[in-house]
């Protein structure tokens, strides 16, 4: 009887310990909502280190914006490069720039990280307007990713008027930095959203919705079950203005300097890296559904193309994970 009692006590203690340990890592959830990179950011972490890890993220994202990626903040690395027509590179910018350049080339210029002069003319961040055609032509002459040359430990511009603009990859690159920070923390799961670019952590499957361009905030046209990946969307509905009855959105074709008009509403890319998903969502939007799908497959990413007529094109790997929830949209082959 005594032995049974000891065994029972041991089982009881083990059960209690297991439950306490499980609860210790699982029970804590921390949320943050903050403004950075011109957009609303939010994150939800669960796990033992959740509160401490979540508290550090807003400052990290803000520091990346003002210290590295911004063209406006005087101290930002990108602003300094643009002022000096190049200069020394250090991480994380060196890595981000190398990756972006590679994707620019892979996309045949559909992504161009030197579109600064052109986007200045449109001024989507400030007072958007249609630029003068002659001005646009001369600004276009100062773009082209080929104008960047990487030297050992630095970059130089062939054209001093060229301006690096990492707007298409900034949020994704920031997600990668956040992901790096969260590695090694005792977390069970995490969702980080920087203005609609999302990072999923922890092996747990989450339901990610693709915003319905015609709907209100919070309304989705489709949902996907995903885990451990990054998701980015480029949509023509996101930033736009109207002039003389015409609608102009913020995704510019590097070849013409004009908003892309190819019947697409949005492109969503699922990738292992935030930078890749962010960059490809823009590049694939510019390329259109057909060529965009080829590029996404080339890069080993999954993609969803939503067209203005309601057609949704989904890459094979996502087909079984995606559910269209709005009857205005249908999947086509």
């Amino acid at each position: 009887m005594k032995k049974v009692l000891i065994a029972l006590a041991a089982v009881l203690a083990a059960a209690l310990a297991a439950v306490l340990i499980y609860d210790g890592t699982a029970g804590r959830e921390a949320q943050q909502t903050f403004f950075a990179m011109d957009t609303v950011c939010s994150l939800t972490l669960t796990g033992r280190d959740a509160a401490q890890a979540a508290a550090a993220i807003p400052a990290q994202v803000t520091a990346l914006e003002t210290g590295v990626f911004s063209r406006q903040a005087a101290d930002a690395a990108v602003a300094r490069l643009n002022r000096n027509g190049g200069g020394a590179l250090s991480d994380p910018l060196a890595q981000v720039l190398a990756q972006t350049w590679e994707l620019s080339e892979k996309s045949g210029g559909a992504l161009d990280c030197t579109l600064g002069a052109v986007s200045d003319l449109w001024d989507f961040g400030g007072d958007p307007h249609v630029p003068d055609a002659a001005q646009l032509r001369s600004a276009l002459a100062h773009t082209g990713y080929q104008k960047l040359h990487f030297t050992s430990g630095g970059v130089s511009y062939d054209d001093p008027a060229a301006a690096l603009d990492l707007g298409a990859v900034g949020k994704g690159a920031a997600l990668d930095a956040v992901s790096k920070t969260l590695q090694g923390k005792r977390l069970r799961s995490g969702i980080v959203s920087l203005g609609g670019s999302i990072l999923l952590l922890g092996g747990q499957a989450f339901t990610v919705g693709i915003k319905d361009p015609a709907g209100n905030a919070g309304e989705c046209l489709a949902t996907m079950r995903l885990s451990d990946c990054c998701i980015s969307t480029s949509g023509s509905y996101e930033r736009f203005f109207e002039e003389n009855g015409e609608r102009y959105h913020h995704i510019l074709d590097p070849k013409t300097g004009l908003p892309v008009r190819n019947g697409l509403l949005s492109v969503t890319i699922v990738a292992d890296s935030g930078l890749v998903s962010d960059a490809l969502s823009t590049a694939c939007f510019v390329l259109g559904a057909e060529r965009g799908m080829v590029l996404a497959k080339d890069c080993g990413c999954e993609a969803v193309f939503v067209a203005e007529n309601g057609d949704v094109t989904v890459s094979d790997g996502l087909r079984s994970l995606l559910t269209v929830s709005n009857t205005d949209y249908r999947i086509i082959d």
Partner: peptide, 15 residues
């Protein structure tokens, strides 16, 4: 949680 705790302390107080 309390039930587990109670079971454990119950055994202890019984002894």
């Amino acid at each position: 949680m309390l039930a587990l705790f109670g079971a454990a302390t119950g055994v202890a107080t019984g002894m």
